[in-house]
Each structure stands twice: as C-alpha cells, then as structure tokens.
Computed example of a mutant assay.
Amino acid sequence: MIEEQQNNPLHGLGLEIMLTELVKFYDWKILYAALRLECFNLNPSHEGSLKFLKKTEWARERVESFYLYRFKRMPKGSSAQFELKPRERGFANGIVPRKPEPLTIELIEQMRTKATADYEAMKANNSKGYSKKVHEGAYKTRTNENRAKPSQDPNNPWGK
C-alpha cells in the first residue's frame, strides 16, 4: 500500500534548490533583511549558506518557514501545526502554492516596525491585567457565529 504524502511544498525539495529559488527571486540583501541570518550578509555564497543551514537547525527552519509562508504563500496553520517543524507540516488537499510575495527592504522594515509595535502594545495590555480589560469590554471573544467561513470553492481555498 502506498502511503499518501502530505500536501507540503517542501516535500522532496532539497535545501540547495530552495536556496537557489529564494536567491534568484529575492537576492541576498532582501533575504538578509527578512531573515537576519549573517550567512546572507557577510560574503554571501551558495556554498557557505548551505553549509551553515545544514549545520544549524533553527536557521534552516527559519528559511523553510520563510519559503512556505512568504515565497509559496501557503495559508497559516493552526497553533498545533506551528509546533511542528516546517517539513512536517501538512496542508489540506487542493491548496496549491501561490505566486511569491514581492518584498523590498523598505517593506520588510515597515513590517518589522509594525510587528514590534503590535508586540509592545500586547505586552502593555497584558501588564495592565487581562481580566480588567475583559470586564471593560476591550477584548472581544470570537464565537463560531462571527468567524469567517471557509471557502467552498476548490479553485480558491483562501476565500479571497
């Protein structure tokens, strides 16, 4: 019996091919700005970067996640999926990768600034006490009624 493979764009994809695709589309400077890995900044080369990524699991997982969610633009999974390594994650059948997200250094800085501001706001809210904010009505809970419904269109699994 043939085992059904996970629907994952990383399945069967070697690190060298992945890096080649990323460098060809984004360039070393944008990869460094997005991932903050020094192997993409100081004298970047395929050989040196591959050697570093093969030895350093956390960096390889960062590149694989970038490949999945920025380059292939796969939909974000559940928190249980994010506990898995990128190569172990699966996606629903019928979901196919989209065109890569165009990035510039300026756009990456804007996204990083927004993420930092959101994190600081979340930290400030948590330090004031979550239960107090709940009673004041600042936090809205999502119920099944007000959640977005999944798309029924097999040609458009994202529903957009």
Rank of each mutant, 00 (worst) to 15 (best):
T104Y: 10
K51H: 04
R142M: 15
E16R: 11
N155W: 06
H135D: 08
N155Q: 15
E38F: 03
L35D: 01
V63L: 15
T113C: 11
S45F: 01
K72Q: 14
N156F: 05
R62Y: 04
D118F: 10
E101M: 15
Y119T: 14
Q81Y: 03
G48R: 13
K99I: 06
K99N: 10
H46K: 14
T104E: 06
N155T: 15
V96T: 15
K128A: 14
S127E: 11
Y26G: 06
P102L: 10
G14S: 14
L53H: 05
L53I: 03
N43V: 09
F52C: 00
G77A: 01
K160I: 02
F66I: 07
K114Y: 13
M74V: 08
Q5E: 12
L22P: 11
Y139F: 14
K72V: 05
N7L: 08
H11I: 06
N144L: 08
L68M: 04
L53P: 04
S45G: 06
R60W: 02
F82C: 01
R89E: 01
A92I: 04
F40R: 05
K133G: 14
E16F: 08
T56N: 13
T141R: 12
S131D: 15
R112G: 00
K132D: 11
S78P: 00
H46P: 01
P100T: 07
K149D: 06
P100C: 05
Q81N: 06
R147F: 01
M18H: 04
G137H: 02
I105D: 12
K72Y: 05
L103Q: 12
P86G: 02
L42G: 01
E16M: 08
P97G: 11
E101Y: 12
D27G: 01
P9Y: 11
A138Y: 15
A33N: 10
A124I: 00
N125E: 14
Q152S: 15
E21M: 04
Q110H: 08
